[in-house]
Write a protein that binds this DNA or RNA. Sequence first.
DNA 1: CCAACAATTATACGTTTGTATAATTAAGGA
DNA 2: TCCTTAATTATACAAACGTATAATTGTTGG
Lengths: 209, 209
Amino acid sequence: MSPRRSFQRAGEEARRAALISATLDLIAEGGPAAATVRAIAARADVTPGLIRHYFATKEDLVAAAHESLMTGLTEAATARLDELTDNPRARLRDFIVASVSPPVTEPRAMALWAASMQLVPRDAAMRRVHEATYLAFRDRLAGLIADALHAAGRSTDTATLRAHAIAGNALLDGLWIEAAAIPDHFSEIDLPELALSAFSRLLNLPLED
Amino acid sequence: MSPRRSFQRAGEEARRAALISATLDLIAEGGPAAATVRAIAARADVTPGLIRHYFATKEDLVAAAHESLMTGLTEAATARLDELTDNPRARLRDFIVASVSPPVTEPRAMALWAASMQLVPRDAAMRRVHEATYLAFRDRLAGLIADALHAAGRSTDTATLRAHAIAGNALLDGLWIEAAAIPDHFSEIDLPELALSAFSRLLNLPLED
DNA sequence: CCAACAATTATACGTTTGTATAATTAAGGA
DNA sequence: TCCTTAATTATACAAACGTATAATTGTTGG
């Protein structure tokens, strides 16, 4: 007499979110190999069969998890912007600082990001998600740069603006990646200050406090 | 009557190298999941049982492969420096261009790098190797920057130089990573020119042709 | 209060995985 | 030349994987 386990119904949205969260947790802790359908189900406190009910294949679930991760990182850098002053230069400065500060620079985020990047070259769905989220972040940065330069009375043709956004994005990416990879080594370095200083020279626009 | 497959004996060193090479090829092509013992053996043109004869466990083989990868990358970067001209500014320029050009920007390199980075937060040995190779690369860049600035008659205190090297390294990392991740999107962009332009502003030192 | 439906669990299947062990064969020294 | 030894192949096995499908159960509208 094995009693069938009781359960509660949850909305589709909540269940998908729970499965995605469980997937990210497992990948962060033990890499992609640890994110098996059975482990994911256990972490989300459901049975493995339910995964197939919401995601046709495990690949779909992983892709959805990647999208959730990337948009989450972008939002982490963007979140404080809305509550900020309307001073364009301060907004850009805050965006830069947030991009090289926790939670973005936490090792967990880096491990997840690396796991995703590893799939990008050969998984079309992952590549599409990555490109979309990359461009979303870059466009956001481009807008902030344009506003800051304009407020300083500088003209900005689109080609130059795009180059600034690409380089600035690359700078922020490289900084948070290394800071997350070897936190001990960067603990004694004021990363926000370094980022602001480099950005100031990149745009020829003072950003430091 | 199935004839047993013929074979030739090889030295331990050669066999281990062949197995490591096969492992890296497979990880680059299909990720860590593709590097099964059977696939590795097939690629190295031996039977799966032989792997266990040289590596007690598959984990040992993967660790050896990562170490080989890291040291190989550093040596490649070091070797490249020696063939450059002795004009300090040209050396820095060539180094920057090489860092955002093939074979560095090939998706294969990015996939292997991402596979390694994914292990860094969880594996102390991997973290040590990564930190050492990162610092080796950064120190090289710092030396090139110092020489170029000095040749231009600029003074450079060590703190500023280190900041320049960190920011420059981050810029190059971010650029080659994205170029390798979404090559289609960057195909129409002159990445070396963009990198040189950004570096020039970062150092306030003209580097473009 | 009941019936219909969707959400969830349960079970099963075929593959593939890493590893263990026994059988064979190439290579070198006596 | 033969005989020993280590390198290599061959076979086997239990565990874990993703997926498919059937059986149940919570929920909601009438």
